[in-house]
Nucleic acid binder design. Structure first.
Lengths: 188, 188
DNA sequence: TACTATACGGAACGTGCGCCCCGTTTTGCC
DNA sequence: GGCAAAACGGGGCGCACGTTCCGTATAGTA
C-alpha cells in the first residue's frame, strides 16, 4: 500500500537531511511558530525544497516529534528494564521534564493547540502510554507512587511541568518539579 | 500628566461597555487568538469603534486581565482576613486553578508569550505577589505548606495547573490538582 | 558528452488579521 | 431645529506566513 518510493537523488537526500536537522534545532530553540521560510533560509535551501520533502509544515514537525517521542519511549523501556520500579518512574519523569526545558517545539506539540497527537500518530501515542503504564504500575506496586493516579494523569502532569519549565519567572525549576514529584508519592 | 479625558458621549460609553463585556466572554471562551473583527461583530459594532476605545488589541485584553487580576487579589485578601492560614492558602489555590479552567484568555495572558505582566502592569503584579506572599507565609508559619517554596514557585505552579486544566486529555482534573496540592504540603 | 528525469530556488499567490482612514451618523448644546 | 464636536462603521492597507508554480540547474545514465 505504501507507494514504492524510489531512491532519492543524492542532492535530494542531502537537502532532506539538512532540512530535518535545521528544523529540529530551530523548533527546539524557538518553538513551532517559526516560519518555514526561516528554516529554509537557515538550512541553505529554498522554501520549495522544504515543501517537496514535507507536503506541509505540520508534516515537518510531525516527523521531528515522532522521532523525539520514539526516542523517549525507548528510554522509558530501557529504564523499566534496568532500574528499580520507583527509581525508573521518577527518572523518566525527570527525562520528560528536562526534555521540555530544552525543546520548546516539543512542548508546543504536546501542549499546544492545533496538534492532536492521538489523531495524527495514534500508534506512537499508544506506545508512549504503554511504556508509561508499565513504569507507573510497577512504581505503584511497590508504593513509590500514589495508587490512584492514572497514566493520563501522569501525562498531563508531565506536560504541565514542561510548560512550567518554560514559563520562566523567578521560580526555581528544581523546587517546582520537586513539589510535583513529592505530590506523586503516596499520601503519608 | 495623565491627560484630562473629558466625559464620554452616551453612545460611546455604551459601546465601550458592550465591547468590554463581549471581549471578556469571547476571550474567556476561546482564548486571546480571537480576531478583533469577530469581537466587534459579536458586540454589534464596527472594528473602528473597538480601536477608538482601545488603541490596540493588547490594550483590550490588558484591560480585561487587569480587572480579573484585581478581582483575584481582592479575593486573596478576603480569604487572608477571614479564614485560617492553611485553609486560606489552598482555597486561593483552588480559586486560581478554577479560574484557569473557566477562562482561556486568562491562561493565555498569564502563560502565553507576548504578554509580560510585569512589564505591562507592574503595580498589579506587585499587588498580586504581595497578597500571595501573605497567604503563603501564614500557611508556612503554621506548617500547612512546605517551608522552602517561594511566591514565584507557587505562582508558576498555579499557572501550570491552569494550563493542565485546559490540556484536556483523559486525565481527571481533580486528581491532578490534588497531586500538586499534596506536593505543596510539608514533607513528612 | 549528450540527454532526461529529478530536484532546486525563490518569486508570486491567497488568506487572515491588526490597524487606519474617512464619509456618514449621532449626540449634546444653543 | 440647527450646528459643531464626537463617535460610528466597514472598506482597505500592509504585513506575515503557508503554499504553489515554473523556469533553471544538476545528478544519473548511456
Amino acid at each position: 500500500m505504501t507507494g514504492n518510493t524510489r531512491p532519492l537523488r543524492a542532492d535530494a537526500r542531502r537537502n532532506r537531511a539538512k532540512v530535518l536537522q535545521t528544523a529540529y534545532e530551530v523548533f527546539a530553540a524557538e518553538g513551532l511558530a517559526v516560519p518555514i521560510d526561516e528554516i529554509a533560509r537557515r538550512a541553505g535551501v529554498g522554501a520549495g525544497t522544504v515543501y517537496r520533502h514535507f507536503p506541509t509544515k505540520e508534516a515537518l514537525y510531525q516527523a521531528i516529534v515522532v522521532d523525539r517521542v520514539e526516542h523517549l519511549v525507548g528510554q522509558a523501556r530501557e529504564l523499566a528494564a534496568t532500574t528499580g520500579p520507583g527509581e525508573a518512574f521518577f527518572a523518566f519523569f525527570d527525562l520528560m521534564t528536562s526534555a521540555g526545558a530544552t525543546d520548546k517545539g516539543l512542548v508546543d506539540a504536546l501542549a499546544g493547540e492545533g496538534f492532536d497527537i492521538e489523531a495524527v500518530m495514534p500508534e506512537h501515542e499508544q506506545a508512549f502510554k504503554d511504556a508509561m503504564r508499565d513504569l507507573l504500575m510497577r512504581a505503584q506496586a511497590v508504593g513509590a507512587v500514589r495508587a490512584d493516579v492514572t497514566v493520563a494523569d501522569v501525562k498531563t502532569l508531565m506536560v504541565g511541568c514542561q510548560a512550567m519549565q518554560r514559563y520562566g519567572g523567578d521560580a526555581a525549576p528544581e523546587r517546582v518539579l520537586e513539589v510535583v514529584r513529592e505530590g506523586l508519592r503516596p499520601a503519608r
